[in-house]
């Protein structure tokens, strides 16, 4: 039997979710898919559907409103899966840290595998994060 787990990293499908970001990181994520950076050459597909996703790209601080939704989406992604937190707010809360309406970084709710810093993170960083995530995915 061939090791089919090996192919996990060859076809990472991405679910992108915005928990209340300023859209800066989202634009950078979309830029990754554009011809200049072309994430698709790594087999990445932006599915928009948790049931077919492997990598959970989250942008934005964990606002209270998004709490349940984030959990719901996370639970709908079949294993093995990795979570990539894109942007400073997502990692730690960033400029929104300790504000009344946020719960800081998303790692207060779901386990995060890769932290991608930056406000907003650049496409290069995001791609780097995804490649890192692929290594983790292979190990899972």
């Amino acid at each position: 039997m061939l090791h089919i787990k090996r192919f996990l990293k060859k076809s990472p499908w991405v679910l992108h979710y915005n928990t209340g970001s300023c859209n800066g990181c989202d634009i950078e994520i979309l830029a990754c898919l554009s011809p200049r950076y072309d994430l698709e050459r790594l087999g990445v597909l932006n599915t928009g559907n948790p049931k077919q996703a492997d990598i959970f790209l989250v942008t934005g601080p964990l606002t209270h409103r998004c709490h349940d939704r984030l959990l719901q989406l996370y639970s709908q992604i079949p294993d093995p899966k990795v979570v990539v937190a894109v942007g400073s707010c997502t990692c730690t809360g960033g400029v929104f840290k300790d504000m009344y309406n946020v719960n800081n970084g998303i790692d207060s709710l779901i386990p995060v595998d890769v932290y991608v810093p930056g406000c907003a993170s650049s496409p290069e960083l995001i791609m780097d994060g995804i490649v890192k995530a692929l290594e983790i995915l292979e190990g899972k």
Binding site: L2, I4, K5, F7, L8, K10, S11, W13, P35, D38, E40, R41, L42, G43, D54, P78, D79, P80
Partner: peptide, 20 residues
């Protein structure tokens, strides 16, 4: 764009087999 490898659908297939 450069695009995915031609064998990408097979990678996808094998990946999907290994998922829950």
């Amino acid at each position: 764009r450069k695009g995915p490898p031609v064998l990408q659908p097979f990678y996808d297939m094998l990946k999907l087999f290994s998922k829950t």
